[in-house]
């Protein structure tokens, strides 16, 4: 079933000719950007996990662009934590980029902001021309 008010898009997909193909030891590879938008709730959690599970793999750098997340609850948060755990176990990097107010609020309420690498610079690496 389509999830209303939620979308997830992937840029730089290494399997589809993107620049994020993992080279050698994986160092220096461009990031895969996963752009999450809308309401990240119980209804969206499975879809989000299926995408993050696919791209968080050994040596990968996955940037989750959270700037357009309008709503996040603990079920969506659990999915992000699960992805973070997988990244840690797989020697991958997961970054939450430009988290919206909705994201920051729930990270803070649940007391888990420290689990994540947050990029609040507003420059989503991998989505533009590079540096």
């Amino acid at each position: 079933m389509a999830v209303e008010g939620f979308s997830v898009e992937v840029d730089n997909d290494p399997d589809r000719g993107g620049a994020a193909a993992v080279t050698g030891d994986g160092k220096g590879a461009a990031a895969v950007t996963v752009t999450v938008a809308g309401d990240v709730d119980l209804a969206a959690a499975d879809t989000l996990w299926s995408v993050l599970d696919e791209y968080v793999r050994p040596g990968a750098h996955v940037v989750v662009d959270c700037s357009r997340v309008a709503f996040l609850d603990s079920m969506g948060l659990r999915t992000l934590i699960r992805a973070q755990h997988k990244a840690a176990a797989a020697d991958a990097r997961l970054t939450l980029a430009a988290p919206s107010e909705a994201v920051l609020r729930v990270l803070q309420l649940a007391g888990v902001a420290d689990l994540f690498v947050l990029d609040i610079s507003g420059d989503i690496s991998g989505s533009g021309s590079g540096r």
Binding site: D73, S74, M75, L77, V106, L109, A110, G111
Partner: peptide
């Protein structure tokens, strides 16, 4: 002892 209850109780 879940995130959900923690968030709910805080709000």
């Amino acid at each position: 002892d879940t995130f959900a209850w923690t968030v709910l109780a805080a709000l």
